[in-house]
């Protein structure tokens, strides 16, 4: 039983690491600021959540430590609440500062409406 829980938690951590890798590759490969931010969302959602869930299982069943488990849960909650606010502010700030992709976006409703 314990072995299976260890395996599941390892698999979750590996999934988290994989999506973090995808996010970083995305940041390097995407063409412009906004698309890079999109890729970076991969890191802060499934990347962090996968690792945190694996850690949560480990804390509950292997370490038997409730306080560690609760702290991990609170970390997940705080990331889920604060991360979108940050991305939203950065994206809007970048757009307002006049940053545009090299090849113009095909649909730009925000630019059309704010003229």
């Amino acid at each position: 039983m314990l072995m299976w829980i260890k395996i599941i938690s390892d698999v979750l951590i590996a999934c988290g690491a994989f999506f973090a890798l995808v996010g970083v590759l995305g940041i390097l490969r995407m063409p412009d600021t906004f698309c890079r931010m999109q890729a970076s969302t991969c890191v802060s959602t499934l990347g962090v959540l996968g690792v945190a869930l694996g850690g949560l299982l480990h804390a509950i069943f292997v370490m038997n430590s409730a306080s560690t488990a609760v702290k991990i849960a609170v970390i997940c909650l705080l990331i889920l609440v604060t991360n979108p606010v940050g991305s939203h502010a950065i994206a809007k700030g970048a757009y307002k500062a006049g940053i545009r992709p090299e090849t113009p976006m095909e649909t730009d409703d925000l630019g059309r409406d704010s003229e």
């Binding site: 995808v22 490969r29 925000l110």
Partner: peptide, 19 residues
Amino acid sequence: NLHMAKVVLGGCKVKPGIV
């Protein structure tokens, strides 16, 4: 996330825009 992984690893063309 899986879709994003496909785009990043498979090198599909992205078509960014604000809707």
